Simulated scan of single mutants.
Amino acid sequence: MTDLDPLDLSDLDAPACPDGDNWCRTVLNMTHSRWLAQSADWLVAKPLTILFILFVAIVIRALARRLIDRLTRSNGDSKVPALLRPLRERAPQALGTLLSERRAQRAKTIGSVFKSITSVLVFGTAFMMILAELGMDLAPVLASAGILGVAIGFGAQNVVKDFLSGVFMMLEDQYGVGDVVDVGEASGTVEAVGLRITTMRDVNGTVWYVRNGEILRVGNSSQGFAVAVVDVPIGYGADVEQATDIIDRVATEVTEVEPVSNDVLEPPEVLGVERVSAAEGIMLRLTVKVRPGRQWAVQRALRARIVAAFEDASIQGPIMRGFPNGD
């Protein structure tokens, strides 16, 4: 028993707190407990440091998201969000209200990508700082995270492919809400554009959901301008020169009167004989440069008036088998 007394006395004489450990001295003065004072680093200092790291991360994330919201918000229908100003915009001004919706959705989608990236970077950094504060070796953690990321990326490569394709499609403004596009197996009017899925509606009302990663080529009928192409068949016995003059006169009359005149960008041009075939007779072609997306309405108006003018002038149409006057 007497052999242990010197050891006990030396422990009692040892200082409770090392020099410079203010937390230890503060807890010792408050509680007069050597054990609590010596554990102050784990009981007080580290929890407070971790809470401070989390608080700073939340504040930085909130400020970053607020900045992104300001960059993606437009002040009016004609205003381009600040986030889109450095990017190239292919959307025609003729889209009107759809242009504002397209800009808003494009900015919102790109903003959501930036928000996700910001959250991952901020909270990922905060997580690493917390692990370092707890005294963990970060090298094995980083190695494990790298292996896990590779495994997830390999298993979800289709999702990653769709996501990256959506990002580049948004940045390049290949198409947007209100555009009439052909993406291969589906075509129609774009109703929504996401980072993984593009939603389209065709002329029959069918909604198509197309994965961005599966789109290999895009035909956009709503960028810059469009061309209304009208092919008019006549019979072999008809006067080609007379039919051409009628098409030119009717096209000029139709394109100079509202509402068709609002969609026409240049005067109509009669190209003449396009082709000759046994089934269709002589095919005459007329073209008109119009606003994007308005070519079909102009084509219908021109066809209706040209057909009526041909009937009034007794222009002979093509004779087809199975129809009256056919063989």
Rank of each mutant, 00 (worst) to 15 (best):
P6R: 13
L9H: 09
D11S: 05
L12E: 13
A14R: 14
P15K: 13
P15V: 10
D19Q: 14
V27S: 00
L28A: 12
T31S: 15
T31C: 10
A37E: 00
D41R: 07
W42F: 13
L43W: 02
L43Y: 07
L48V: 15
R65F: 09
R66Q: 05
S74N: 08
K79Q: 12
V80K: 01
A91L: 11
P92M: 07
Q93I: 02
L98H: 05
A107Q: 02
I110P: 01
S112Y: 04
F114G: 04
S119E: 10
L121N: 01
V122H: 04
F123P: 05
F127E: 05
L131I: 00
L134A: 04
G135N: 11
D137L: 03
A139V: 14
A143Y: 04
A145M: 11
A145K: 01
G149E: 00
G149D: 05
I152R: 00
Q157R: 12
N158M: 09
K161Q: 10
G166I: 01
L171Y: 09
G176H: 03
T189Y: 10
R196D: 04
T199H: 11
R201V: 15
N204H: 12
T206D: 11
V210D: 00
L216K: 03
L216G: 10
L216M: 03
R217S: 15
S222C: 10
G224N: 09
A226I: 06
D231Q: 15
I247R: 02
D248M: 11
T252N: 11
V257Q: 05
V260F: 03
P268Y: 02
E269C: 00
E274T: 01
R275E: 15
S277N: 02
Q299V: 11
R300A: 15
A301Q: 13
R305Y: 06
Q316S: 15
P318C: 12
I319Q: 13
F323R: 12
N325W: 06
D327Y: 09
